[in-house]
């Protein structure tokens, strides 16, 4: 396995998480400002761009590696997104939600490994 995999996998994960954060932020602001607002539009574009980066990085990874190796890393996105939403978007995160997200992440990793 190439060393570049250890750069591309985190990169794909980061692109996915940032994409979701951008889309969430755009949709939330759209509730107040509507869809013609310049900030809403630009956040939507950033979100779609990040998701596209994730899409191509994932395709590239899948071209060289097994799905059973690539997919577990996507399982980690659950806990990372919950923490990022709490930090970046100031969403309220309690112990129960954190534990829930952690169990889902671990569960997905186990499902895709076996």
């Amino acid at each position: 396995m190439n060393w570049i995999v250890f750069i591309l996998i985190p990169a794909a994960l980061i692109a996915f998480v940032t994409g979701q954060l951008f889309l969430k932020h755009a949709m939330e602001s759209s509730a107040e400002k509507g869809f013609r607002d310049a900030r809403v539009i630009s956040f939507l574009i950033y979100g779609v761009l990040s998701m596209s980066v994730n899409f191509f990085l994932t395709l590239g990874l899948l071209a060289h590696l097994d799905l059973s190796f690539v997919y577990p890393f996507q399982g980690l996105s659950v806990i990372i997104i919950s923490l990022a939403a709490a930090i970046v978007l100031r969403e309220r995160l309690n112990l129960r939600l954190t534990l829930g997200a952690l169990l889902i992440s671990v569960g997905i990793v186990i499902v895709s490994l076996s």
Binding site: R96, L99, L103, I104, G107, I108, S112, L113
Partner: peptide
């Protein structure tokens, strides 16, 4: 099955 069970517990907590 173990992984599936963990995800279900996590979903219930969420």
């Amino acid at each position: 099955w173990l992984g599936i069970a963990l995800v279900i517990i996590g979903l219930m907590l969420t």
